[in-house]
Amino acid sequence: MNSGLSSLADATSSDAALRRFLHGLPGVDQVGAEQRAAGLGTRSIKTSAKEYAIDLAIRMVDLTTLEGMDTPGKVRALSAKAMRPDPADQTCPHTAAVCVYPDMVGFARETLGSSGVNIAAVATAFPSGRAALDIKLADVQDAVEAGADEIDMVIDRGAFLSGRYLEVFEEIVAVRAACGDAHLKVIFETGELQTYDNVRRVSWLAMMAGAHFIKTSTGKVQPAATLPVTLVMLEAVRDYRDVTGQMVGVKPAGGIRTSKDAIKYLVMVNEVAGPDWLSPDWFRFGASTLLNDLLMQRTKMKTGRYSGPDYFTLD
């Protein structure tokens, strides 16, 4: 393990060394990766397995609102929903977190208190990441001071695509330092990085820089999370643990709307990274509408009947 860590430390000693390391990672064959993801998507998860998966998925949701029109009232409502997703059923677990802009963290905290639902704040000039480093760090500090448990940062995609890997690395290191005790999720915006080779490289870069979680997307760019992109990231965290002994979490975000989709992701977590990742500590869904579909399926499993959408709260 130590030899693995120290060789990784060498890899980040200079821009040239980091480039050599990232470009030395095995390539990803696009056709093969997509075929594998599609194959896992055909798993048929029924009855007891489906009940397990739905409850697990609810516990993994980062219930998200990231709109210009967000208000304290909206965030309070969302927080209440995160604590008690199904008011009619006390056995329904709470979500992992709510995910909001930094200026909304205080309002979320008022509602959530010490309920066990974490507060995640997007920061570093989300979603574009186009700002000076000190502004990004101030953004992070704001969120942490307001009580955020988790920081979802965006990387500088421009720097990554132009090959300035060390710059991206150092920015993540700086943000991680600014996080203090808060956990750091690093958003790649894979819809802009585009190739699976880039996804693999940026995954390693972020893990070496100290990310607790690696996250696909902001939700503001299409395509957002996809199964093959998440596959490549799950392979990366699996391989990173082999080398360093350390686990890093994965968060697909954006575009996951149905229980069926969520279950496909969980199958992939189970079979690619392994069962150790089947926990909200190591896997999250960044989503807003997914939760209600999970609740509808959960109610259907328990009662044998589908209820209309009006039987579930909007937020």
Binding site: M1, I45, K46, S48, A49, Y52, A53, L56, P275, D276
Partner: peptide, 28 residues
């Protein structure tokens, strides 16, 4: 390559989630 698994520490404590159940066994 070391196989030993070391948790990164405080994450588990932070989410305060209850311990994970039996696992993802695919039903027939």
């Amino acid at each position: 390559m070391a196989k030993k698994v070391v948790s990164t520490g405080s994450t588990t404590a932070k989410t305060g989630s209850t311990t994970v159940q039996a696992g993802f066994d695919y039903a027939p």
